[in-house]
């Protein structure tokens, strides 16, 4: 009887994994923005003023995905419909400045795989996640990577419990003062070679909490991230594709 019930669940489950994570586009997702190349209304600074994280600069217009929280406020105020958020999830970068979206450029910046890291971690990468002020949005999306849909393990990439078993530190949250010691301890416990991945606007730039009273970003100033994964929170596909590009997989 019990096995019959289990079979019913199995039948209802079907096949859930996304076969090609490289090509998957989540319909309806507010992802990578593109900027039209048409002129702005004269003296219009509405998008910059509406942005809660100072992600937008003017003359010419740029959007920094390391700060953007994808709230759509800029789109709502733009009289020229210059800003469009697309469902594209490709928002990983190895260089901080590659997160800046510029006018008239519709394709994401190509990431150059790291040759040295690719050789070591290309077939097996163990990640230790530490949240330091993360709101559980990034954490839930990172957890989702291990579910039946995204199945990150198919690439030999896995979450591990101990930093001693890890190759990289995946940071979420703006880095709180109260987590300063714990983040440093976790990093010190990871054997070399190792690197830091900053996930989400908070970790990359401080985001909505840049300069907030409980935030201390000294760690990231001394140990710069090797990989940036943008979003608020980043879609699991953003993370997968960033890691695969970084290590030159697939």
């Amino acid at each position: 009887m019990t096995s019959f019930k289990a079979l019913r669940v199995r039948l209802s489950q079907g096949t859930q994994y996304i076969t090609d994570l490289r090509k998957a586009v989540p319909s309806g997702f507010r992802g990578r923005p593109i900027l039209g190349s048409g002129p702005c209304a004269s003296d219009c600074e509405a998008c910059r003023d509406a942005c809660p994280t100072e992600a937008i600069r003017l003359y010419p217009v740029t959007i920094d995905l390391g700060r953007c929280v994808f709230c759509n406020a800029c789109v709502e105020v733009c009289p020229e419909k210059k800003i469009v958020f697309t469902p594209d999830t490709m928002m990983g970068a190895a260089e901080r400045e590659h997160l800046v979206v510029r006018e008239g450029i519709t394709e994401p910046a190509r990431m150059k795989p790291s040759q040295s890291l690719s050789k070591i971690f290309g077939r097996s990468l163990k990640l230790r996640q530490v949240s330091a002020g993360g709101c559980n949005g990034c954490e839930l999306e990172l957890n989702a990577l291990a579910n039946v849909n995204f199945d990150l393990q198919r690439f030999g990439i896995e979450w591990v419990a101990s930093p001693r078993h890890a190759d990289a530190l995946v940071l979420t949250g703006p880095l709180t003062r109260n987590m300063r010691d714990a983040v440093r301890l976790a990093w010190d416990a990871i054997p070399e070679p190792r690197f830091v991945v900053a996930v989400g606007a908070c970790a990359i730039s401080g985001g909505l909490y840049e300069g907030a009273s409980g935030v201390d970003r000294d760690f990231l100033e001394s140990v710069g991230p090797s990989l940036y994964v943008a979003g608020c929170p980043p879609h699991p596909l953003t993370f997968v594709n960033a890691i695969l590009d970084f290590l030159g997989i697939g």
Binding site: G133, G173, A212, S213, V215
Partner: peptide
């Protein structure tokens, strides 16, 4: 450990 300073912000 997660204190960011929400209320002040």
């Amino acid at each position: 450990y997660q204190h960011r300073g929400v209320e002040r912000r």
